[in-house]
Design a protein around this nucleic acid. Structure first.
Lengths: 109, 109
DNA sequence: TCATAATACCTTGACAGACATAGTATTGTG
DNA sequence: CACAATACTATGTCTGTCAAGGTATTATGA
């Protein structure tokens, strides 16, 4: 068990959407994404690195995001991710699916 | 794709809790559980049979529910499930975990 | 100076829950 | 008498997540 306060099992399937949502606000690099998720969640959820990178890879393969290396002249290289139109579409669809799922869960739990 | 209106991926991890919640209201047999879930969800979610039975098996193995054969003198035999105290505890814990998860997701999505 | 933490990325193998598919058996219906 | 509905079970596959390991650079403080 890492320092996670919310069970990741219950967030399963939402990783892609969480990342897409973050990229709606502008390009970000991987490490930054995990930090921002931690902050935005109110320190309740720590996105596992391996999970994040596999999600990024999946999104990239599916054309939902594009990746480019930053132009850092010093410091560690950073790989930035940018949302595509297809990514924006997927976010909207997933957000909608979540609204439905939440409604259903509130009836069932 | 079956006749499901809500993505089962987003309900992943909630199957056990959904079943425990139903059993809070009294003993039920498997087939009945799947029907009730469909009704309670407002026809939005159809619990897959294989998923349900594997959940029931898991809950039974973990001592959260007990199973007994009904005393049907005619008709198909029915296996009933009854909540244990440990099951009630698990439900309360899972319900609480869901409340936390929902709060976090509302921040992140 | 030099160990250590923090930053930043990546890969591999394993696990667990959900699923499709298949099967058995009984009862009601047209 | 075929077929749908009820009711339970077993098997193998898929996918997202994770632990664990790795590489490399920069900042910090003892």
């Amino acid at each position: 068990m890492t320092n996670t306060t919310v069970s990741s099992d219950l967030l399963r399937g939402h990783t892609d959407t969480i990342i897409l949502k973050l990229l709606l606000g502008g390009d970000h690099y991987g490490y930054e994404i995990s930090k921002k998720v931690y902050e935005t969640s109110g320190h309740m959820y720590e996105l596992n690195e391996a999970t994040m990178y596999s999600s990024l890879k999946r999104l990239e393969n599916d054309g939902r995001i594009t990746a480019y290396w930053g132009s850092e002249t010093q410091g560690v290289r950073r790989k930035y991710y940018r949302l595509t139109d297809a990514g924006r579409e997927l976010y909207a669809a997933n957000k909608n699916a979540w609204d439905v799922a939440r409604t259903v869960l509130e009836k069932l739990l």
